[in-house]
Design a protein around this nucleic acid. Structure first.
Lengths: 333, 333
DNA sequence: CTGAAAGCGCTTACAG
DNA sequence: CTGAAAGCGCTTACAG
């Protein structure tokens, strides 16, 4: 029913705890926040903690945010492209990892209408994590206001300070794997979803650079739509001219494999195919899909540490040397 | 660097806007919130709106939450099971739809350690949306405190008031589709992931009931692990004894199809297979997967309306009569 | 070793 | 038609 709350539902406050423990609310705040240089006896601390326990006190995020000028939330800005299982995993990992540090992950889709800056001002999050490119001016404004800003990005960043986490290198890894298997003429299958924006370009650049570095000819890049006939033309063009194709991701790889089946071609003999992501169905592709896997758990763990340190004003943790990337070799390449 | 914010980064407040517009902060608050019965001249309103614009004012979520006792956030409690593309879509849709109502979707994974109630007290969200079962006591406590609670659930709910959105029926739909195609002896492929908890049981119950209602014999239920050999035993057992299988979801269907390939069997002639979800790669299965699709956009739109009405204390929107479900018929069944 | 008090930025009866 | 003022629940110099 629409009846307003009534009766015994008053919120338990710091003052309530203080009263129960026989101290002021300030003291409670001190012990709850482990404020240093505040010599409070162990006995008092224990009494306070017990009162907290007994009353079931939880502090108000709003009040805390208001008085400190900064909340315990971390804003993850989701790009407008479709959220795949990978991003889901990232959200997941970040929620867990940050939660362990007392931070609440808040997710916001980046929409053309609503500016991130507006949401940022409203929420006053402790940090914001971008997923991809960051507007330089926006980032600076946030930093000036004391918000830690970082990004999980495919691009190499120009922001020396903390935009460090890179999840690329998948393209080069695909190329290296195929080159090691003796392939020299490579195709690249790029998706056609316009929502992906310039994302495929970055991946593509990585592949092109890797080909050049390895002394391979420039790859034969072709769009593959995610529908049943999407790969037909590309497969026809590749067949004979190219011996292996790097797919933008596993979904595109599935489309390519399907196109090959329609053309009576087999992987890897007629055309080797390698994906990116290792989605759950990758092992059940026909043939089972060789793909590049990102260690999402490691990525989120690192980003969480980065954010934690950044908020505390501590030096950032050393950037992991390994690349969070590996190829899982199955049968398609 | 770790330097604290300094210089011209003071936050713009209601009072600033009031000063600029030559009114009190209270008046600004009134026009910004469209408070009724507060006869403020159009001229004043315009002046205020211009000041807001010029100063780039955005109100502090924390202060607002603190003074109203309720934030503009909506907490979506994510179940501990793995987040698939479907849940990602739900998050997505809800973020969009609720955002349009001025509400911020906040997502929290349900973890064994951290209680939802604690987070709820901290955040003081306007509403919480569960994904599955809700603890009755917890729900009541939240409601008593004025938080709107609802759930997107597979189970039919006992909570007459507002736990209305049901996303099940996929099982019965699978059965109906197969029965219409002349199948009578059905298999069911259930996943083995322990994180799914009792979820498959609900689906299974639906399938069993549908079989009984359609006069079909009880289905032959078998677990299918999501690895390469996972479906082998089940496929061997089903072959000959059963003519079609309902997979718990598309991923399981992929595993079954893969097992069939390993056994030299073809769908649908040897065994028809139908999934649930219509994941992006479903059209590229071999053969293309027939599956039950949920209209996520419609679901999130409805839930958003439900939440919006619930928060406002308005009567809930009529429950949509259609079931958000349809089968997309491809070749596997 | 601990507390009184101001302040964070809003909302909202209440008074005029 | 509009404003002064109390209050939401914290944090944090400051005083003792």
């Amino acid at each position: 029913m629409g009846t307003p709350p009534e009766g015994p539902s008053r919120r338990i406050t710091l003052a309530d705890v203080g009263r129960a423990a026989g101290v002021s609310s300030a003291t409670v705040s001190y012990v709850l926040n482990d404020v240093p240089n505040q010599k409070i006896s162990e006995a008092t601390r224990a009494r306070i903690r017990r009162a907290v326990e007994e009353l079931g006190y939880t502090r108000s995020a709003a009040a805390r945010a208001l008085s400190t000028g900064r909340g315990d939330t971390v804003l993850l800005v989701l790009p407008p492209w479709p959220i795949g299982p990978l991003i889901a995993e990232v959200i997941d990992g970040l929620t867990d990892d940050l939660g362990r540090q007392g931070l609440s992950l808040v997710t916001r889709r980046e929409l053309p209408q609503r500016s991130v800056a507006a949401l940022w001002r409203e929420l006053a999050p402790a940090a914001v994590i971008y997923f991809g490119e960051v507007d330089v001016a926006e980032r600076q404004a946030m930093r000036r206001a004391g918000t830690y800003v970082t990004s999980i990005s495919g691009q190499v960043s120009d922001d020396a300070a903390d935009l460090v986490t890179s999840t690329t290198g998948s393209g080069p890894l695909q190329v290296a794997y195929l080159a090691a298997a003796g392939h020299r003429r490579l195709g690249v299958a790029v998706p056609t979803d316009p929502r992906l924006g310039s994302l495929p370009d970055g991946r593509l650049a990585g592949i092109r650079a890797a080909c050049a570095a390895a002394g391979l000819p420039a790859p034969d890049v072709r769009p593959v739509a995610l529908d049943v006939a999407g790969a037909d033309a590309a497969v026809a063009a590749w067949h004979g001219s190219v011996t292996a194709v790097c797919a933008y991701n596993d979904e595109v790889a599935f489309a390519v494999l399907h196109g090959m089946r329609r053309a009576g071609l087999r992987a890897p003999s007629d055309l080797a195919v390698i994906g990116v992501d290792d989605i759950p169905t990758a092992p059940f592709a026909d043939p089972p899909l060789t793909t590049v896997k990102q260690d999402i758990a490691a990525i989120t763990a690192h980003v969480s540490r980065l954010v934690g340190a950044g908020i505390a004003g501590a030096p950032p943790p050393p950037h992991p040397t390994r690349d969070f990337l590996s190829v899982v070799s199955r049968e398609s390449a």
